[in-house]
Simulated assay, not measured.
Amino acid sequence: MSDPTNPTPTTPDPELPSSEGPQPEPSQPDTPPPTPLPPPVAPPETPPSAPPATPTPLKSPFSEEEARLRTQLYLTKRLDYQAEYYQKRSDEFNFNSDRMLYVSAGIMFVSTLVSSFSVVSGWPIWALITALLPAFAAGVSAFRSLYQWERQASLYDEAWIALQQARLTMPDEDYTEPGDYQRSLPQLVDQTEEILRGEAGQWGQINLAVKSGAQNGQTVAPPAAANGE
């Protein structure tokens, strides 16, 4: 029997469950498993660069003999005809410009002679002629500048020279090879037509100069009047 004054601690029976119940284990946070890294991807192999493709020349729609005949026809009816026209116009305008220059210089020379004779003779009529001749010479010079023959002749000369240069694209008939006329005919036509368009554009610039001169009170002869059209 136990002594109430000296209590002894009682040890719980290990077989009996505790009144507090089983202690729960601490919960672990649900962490996802680490994602495996993807394997390294090798860079794509760069294919070797292909050599630049050689441009294939356009096949001419004409045979060599037909291209030769068309070239001769184009030279005769287009290039040579236009070059002859330019040459005639250039000669005509140069002649008109030189003739007006010679007339003006001749009038001034006659005016000098008449002036010297009027001093010796003392006649009033010679003094009047001496005063009028320089005015005639100035009128001839103004007429020459009005039509701009030198400028128009230079345009025709430049176009004629350009046509002769375009003619050099043609092969020499004594040293032709198969396919020369087929290759040179398109170049000849392109260069010739470009020259003719440029020559026509020059007249358009002169027309603009005529209009601007008329607005500014200046008188400039249009190309149609100078060409006699």
Rank of each mutant, 00 (worst) to 15 (best):
Q182W: 02
R89G: 08
A127H: 03
N96P: 00
A67H: 02
Q148C: 07
D174F: 08
W123F: 14
E177H: 07
S111G: 15
R70H: 02
S63M: 01
L168N: 06
A131G: 06
S141P: 01
L79F: 00
L101P: 01
L132C: 11
G179M: 02
R99Y: 15
A153F: 01
L79N: 00
I129A: 15
G179P: 03
Q165V: 05
A166V: 04
L132P: 03
F143K: 11
A83V: 02
E64C: 03
F109K: 14
A153H: 03
S63F: 06
E65S: 10
I107L: 15
F117S: 09
T76C: 05
P171A: 04
S141H: 10
D172I: 01
R151D: 09
A138I: 09
F109W: 13
S118V: 00
S90C: 13
W123P: 00
K59Q: 12
K88V: 12
Y74H: 04
D91G: 10
Q164L: 09
S154G: 02
Y85T: 12
F143M: 09
Q82M: 09
V120L: 13
Q152E: 09
A142R: 15
P124M: 08
P124Q: 09
V120N: 04
T169V: 14
A159H: 02
I107P: 00
V110L: 15
S60M: 07
E65W: 03
E173V: 13
Q165L: 12
R78N: 08
Q182L: 05
Y156K: 06
F143R: 08
E65I: 04
L58F: 09
G179N: 03
N96T: 09
S63R: 02
Y147E: 00
R78P: 00
N96M: 13
L133F: 11
A142Y: 13
Y175N: 11
S97D: 13
E64H: 01
F143Q: 05
